[in-house]
Nucleic acid binder design. Structure first.
Lengths: 214, 214, 214, 214
DNA sequence: TATGAATGAGTGTTCATTCAT
DNA sequence: TATGAATGAACACTCATTCAT
């Protein structure tokens, strides 16, 4: 009972440091991208010496990996639910809204996520792999959503549409993040949803148009 | 009579050198991104010594700026025509096709353009400024196109729609460039056009489509 | 009555800590050499925090110096006797045996001693000075032994012979320590003694052996 | 005929730089040992910037490896001859003289060789391997020499004697290098030879002593 | 006193840029 | 002009040492 507080406080301190460093890293990555971000700059941003940074992370890549992992985990938690629990029989606007809302909200809270995802060629192996994995997972999820909407589509076409949808969403998120918070951002959010709805809406058509005539 | 030819040939030689260096830079930027591209790598790619590179460009940034400028100029030449000459009374699919086709073709021939435009945070000031300028110009052009389609839209909304359109186009171009040449790329091109058409189509409708069929 | 026990216990505790740290240092120096040994590694080996280490030693060098001093002291205690008490009228093999046996035994028990003595250039000033001092003392002792054997030798020559003897002993000790304990090590020990005996034996001879038996 | 000078001069310059850097490295290694030698210190000693050093060597280890290789090559050239051409029927003092003289001379000209060989634990893999190889080769050569002198010796004993001989030689070389050039050094050289002769002389005995009695 | 997180100067190394040839 | 060796500031990272707890 008298021995636990110390280690706990220690761990707590460690966790706080890590969080502080990751936040600093997120901020620097957002400003300069991964490649141009210097570990010393991250340490400075975290108001900590370079040595301290290296007490918690073995190297620069590990910082980005851990940051990516944490963001990913949170993203999956937030967004996985959205994807899995969404009622596929909902009208498209509501469906898109249900799926996109948590994604947008997450990215607004964690702009580093997109920053990390964007660094195309300049990120080292581990992060690029994560990229790939997340990207693939998202394509799959969107693909499944599309299948439930338009089961007749062949695999290639579905994949293409999923990729385009994801592209639109990413582009829209960039615009959303670039917009100042307030009505402007809200408007951009609405515009993004509208774009996705309009893009996917035609996929619905056939079943309805084909069945009439009594 | 003996002094003119020399400078001309010199200038000609200089132009060739610059072109050679810019092409090398384009190639390297595409492979590694701006930040990770080393001037020595560019010089090597151009089969020229680093010293020679610095005879034509004061620093690394200047290379990117000049490359950007030239691509821009070519883009404007190719695309400006498309934008300016397009018949605004064409049905939307044909209109989008007329505007987008040269853009796509240009970007396929000059993948460095998109590479340069994408480097979000890792490019230094000057290049970012150019970004801004090009971006702004494109927004304006798209905005004008939109005004001709939907004159009733207020400025803010038009701007927002133009930005989203540009975002969709950029995202689509990424997919197009990522797709292997052949049917896959063609399919992706078609998908991009479809996305833009679907996004912009509703802007036409209200006044005309809502009142039909007695 | 209530003040004395505490300091004593403290001192005792301090001594134990110091001993513990020095032993850890000896172990680490043996494994990695002085230069490559990190104070953190020593503290870890002693199962103590770096801060504690610095409560007993002002810096890394002081650890090596103190370790050297203690080893030296013990060496002197063990070996001084051997040197001082040895019966100089003994035949050379027995004499060498009497002097070398405790030296060998000491070095087998304290391999750090040789490790510390060997670090030729990579040790800082203070340690090098100690080196010098020990070295000088050993040379002197061996020199005296040699004088008792060959009183006719001039100073320079005696010093040279003493130095070579010490060199042979050090080289032999390295071999002994490198050999696995058991018959191999015993054989190496015997070889070392043989080498020293053969080297010094001719110093005895001339006056007695040259004039023999008609 | 007009194109060759440039590359040649270039290569010559490069070679000179490398030689200059290696010499500086040798000097610094001698003073501080490998581990404590900083590349910047080597560059400074060579009156060159750190960048220049890295134009010729990919990393610190490569400097030591190249230096070791060159020294080794020269050593083998000088010493191999001595070992291979020596007339084994020579009386021992002449034989030792013939073998040792070039070794001593080489080490006097290249004190870095011994310095590099001495760094026991603090040298990285590649160099340690070279160590091992040279050491082994020397043991083999000395072993063969011993076999020609004392063919009856069993393998283990021969190896032990070879190792001790090598140890004596190394120890002696250290003394030789430590002695100021002039009569003192010459005397030390003579003493080293004497030590080796005395150590190996008894191996000759049997054949002579056993064959008498007509 | 003991702890171990924090420090920051110093390492090895890279790369944009300069300059003697 | 063209060359490529040379430069040196800056980066990722380490470790002897300090200090709040």
């Amino acid at each position: 009972m008298s021995e636990e507080p110390a280690p706990r406080r220690r761990q707590a301190r460690g966790e706080r440091r890590i969080a502080q460093l990751l936040q600093a890293a997120a901020s620097v990555f957002c400003r300069t991208g991964y490649a141009a971000a210097s570990t010393n700059a991250i340490a400075r941003e975290a108001k900590v010496s370079p040595g301290t940074l290296y007490q918690y992370f073995p190297n620069k890549e590990a910082i980005a990996v851990e940051l990516g992992d944490r963001l990913l985990q949170e993203m999956r938690a937030t967004q996985g639910l959205a994807f899995d629990r969404v009622d596929l029989r909902l009208p498209l606007p509501e469906l898109v809204d249900a799926v996109l809302e948590p994604v947008i909200e997450f990215n607004c809270r964690n702009p580093a996520f997109l920053a990390l995802m964007h660094g195309s060629g300049d990120v080292p192996g581990r992060i690029a792999e994560e990229h790939e994995a997340v990207h693939e997972q998202m394509l799959t999820r969107i693909g499944e959503l599309i299948r439930s909407i338009a089961p007749a589509l062949d695999d290639g076409e579905r994949r293409r549409i999923a990729a385009m949808t994801l592209g639109i969403v990413k582009a829209g998120l960039d615009l959303v993040l670039a917009a100042p918070e307030g009505p402007e951002r809200d408007g951009t959010v609405a515009e993004l949803k509208r774009a996705v709805v309009r893009y996917l809406d035609p996929l619905f058509a056939p079943p309805l148009t084909t069945t009439p005539s009594p």
